[in-house]
């Protein structure tokens, strides 16, 4: 096992350097230049962009820039944003809790809804419930989230007035009591969380449905049935176990997604998360911020992959032995 982990680690380090080098090159080669300060304004002098270039060493050759940047990264120094002069790490730090928090809720909902959904649909394959959920999850998958979001905002926000349109808290949040605050946040989260979860039900529920169908045909389930075990116990004890095992992989793979945040979703609901930060950084050609965000998501993806592999190896001895 130790050797296996070591091998994986070396692999990861090489991958990491490769990822950063390629993304650095791609971003620098993309046309355009840091636009934060360069608004197209006749009163604004354009030599400012030259000053910025000098200040941040953007006039040096590409490989030198990369080397300087890479050395700093090893010291965990992500540099300062080209647009507002703040530390990249600080900008990321204030956004992470928002995206992470929402995504955890969303993921919790996806798992707790789509696995039972898939289980029942699979167990009662071809039944009314199966057909209904199939239509539902595929509709969720197919509907563009921004469109659904706007419809819901119009209906529940404007017409019925039940939920706030956007943002995470009310304008008067500071002056609320604690229960009011909790209620306020919850009210703001209903629409975004619903929209984000609804679109992602399909994948997992389809997966657990097909896995259920596969397991239901297995001999041990037939044995359990003929033993006279209640269906409830068969489904939740025996089938669920089989379905859950590969879920570990899915969990591992969703680690980077937890921090990624979607641009469309965050824009529509005015949620100042990581997705929006990344989008704005790209539009501004804020190189240091882009690279900071990329490194973090690359590291997380790699860690997520590794965790998934390790967990799998731990849970399923066949993999461990084959690799060794």
């Amino acid at each position: 096992m130790g050797k296996y982990i070591l091998k994986r680690m070396i692999n990861l380090a090489v991958l990491f350097v490769g990822i950063t080098a390629i993304s650095f090159a791609v971003i620098k080669l993309a046309p355009g230049s840091p636009a934060g300060i360069y608004s197209f304004n006749a009163k604004v002098k354009t030599d400012v962009s030259k000053r910025i270039e000098k200040l941040y060493g953007l006039d040096k050759p590409l490989w030198q820039q990369y080397w300087i940047w890479f050395k700093n990264i090893l010291k965990l120094d992500f540099g300062t944003s080209l647009t507002d002069g703040r530390k990249v790490i600080d900008e990321i730090k204030e956004r992470i809790p928002i995206t992470l928090g929402i995504n955890l809720i969303v993921m919790f909902i996806i798992f707790s809804v789509s696995i039972p959904l898939g289980l029942w649909a699979g167990y009662k394959q071809g039944g009314l419930f199966d057909k209904f959920t199939t239509i539902l999850v595929f509709a969720g998958f197919a509907v563009p989230s921004f469109w659904l979001a706007l419809l819901l905002m119009q209906y529940f926000g404007v017409d019925l007035g039940w939920f706030p349109i956007s943002g995470l808290v009310s304008v008067d949040f500071d002056y609320f009591t604690l229960p009011q605050k909790i209620f306020d946040v919850a009210k703001h989260l209903v629409l975004p969380v619903f929209v984000a979860s609804f679109g992602s039900l399909a994948g997992l529920s389809r997966y657990s449905r097909s896995k259920t169908i596969e397991i239901t045909r297995a001999n041990y389930i037939r044995a359990a049935l003929s033993k006279g075990l209640p269906v409830r116990i068969i489904v939740y004890r025996h089938i669920l176990k089989g379905v859950m095992l590969p879920v570990i992989t899915i969990l591992g793979l969703s680690v980077p997604g937890l921090l990624g945040g979607s641009v469309v979703f965050e824009t529509i609901f005015s949620i100042p998360g990581m997705g929006l930060l990344f989008y704005q950084a790209v539009m501004m050609r804020d190189y240091t911020l882009i690279m900071g965000l990329l490194v973090i998501s690359a590291v997380l993806t790699l860690i997520g992959n590794m965790l998934a592999d390790l967990a799998y190896a731990w849970a399923d001895p066949r993999i461990r032995y084959r690799r060794n």
Partner: peptide, 20 residues
Amino acid sequence: IVFRVIPDTATLFLEVLTQG
């Protein structure tokens, strides 16, 4: 005076409709 960042113009208009 409270400034809110609302990146999407469609959302902004819905906010106006609800007096947000």
